[in-house]
Amino acid sequence: MSKPVISMHDVKKIYELGDNKVHALRGVSLDIEPGEFVTITGASGSGKSTLMHILGCLDRVSAGTFKLNDKDVSNLSREELANIRNKQIGFVFQGFNLLPRTTATENVEVPLLYSRPLIPAVERKEKALRALEKMGLSDRADHHPSQLSGGQQQRVAIARALVNEPSLILADEPTGNLDTKTGQDVMQTLLDLRESTGITIILITHEPEIAAYGSRIISIRDGLIVSDQANTRPPIPTESPSLAAVP
C-alpha cells in the first residue's frame, strides 16, 4: 500500500474569541490514500471549512498531528507552508476566486508565478494553455472572467488548481454557486480528471447528490467525524436524458 496523502491524528482546532473558545474541530483522525475522491458533508458550522483550511495548509492545528505526503506540516514556517500550497495542493473555491479583468490564461498562470525555481514566462503560458485545454477551454483562453459562464469560470479555476501538477485538489463547495446541471458538469469534470491523472480529490459540500460523486463519503458534525464510508456506487455520469427526446 502506498503512503497516504493525508494522515491526521486527533486534530483539534480551537478559535479563541476573548474568553470564549470555539471548538471547531474536536479530534479528527483521517487517512486519505492517493487517488481517492473524498467528499465531506455536514451541516453549516460543523467544521468542514476549518478542516479544509488545515488540509490545505492555510491554517495550523491547535492539537494533534497532520502529515501531508508523509511530512509533518504542523511546525513549518509560513514560507514553507506557502511553498507546499504552491507545489502540492490545488484549491477550488465556491466563489471561483478568479482575478477580474484578467484573462483565463493569466489567471491559470498565477500559481506558476510563485513557483521556485522561477518559471520563464513562455513556459508559464504554455503550461496554462495546456491546463485550459484539459478543461476544454482552449477557445476561451483570452476571455476575462466576466465573459465566461459560471461553469466555465469554475473550470478555469480547476485548470488553475491543476497547473502546477499537485498531488491533491481541495474543493470547498465548488458547485455552491452553480445550478444543478452545471454543478453536475463540474463534478463530471473532476471525475474525469481523477480517472485520467489519478489525482487525489477532497471535496466539501452540503448537498447529498454532490457528495454521492465521491468514492468515499465522510460526514462531520460539531467538529467530529460521524460517519466515514466507501461509496461503492458512485452515480453513473448522468448523460442526462437528451432534451431532444422530450416531446
Binding site: R85, P111, Y114
Partner: peptide, 16 residues
C-alpha cells in the same frame, strides 16, 4: 484582501 488571500492560497509568500 480576498485577492491577497487567493494569492497566498496559490503559493504567494509574504515577501511576494
Amino acid at each position: 484582501t480576498r485577492e491577497i488571500g487567493l494569492r497566498m492560497a496559490l503559493g504567494a509568500r509574504m515577501k511576494d
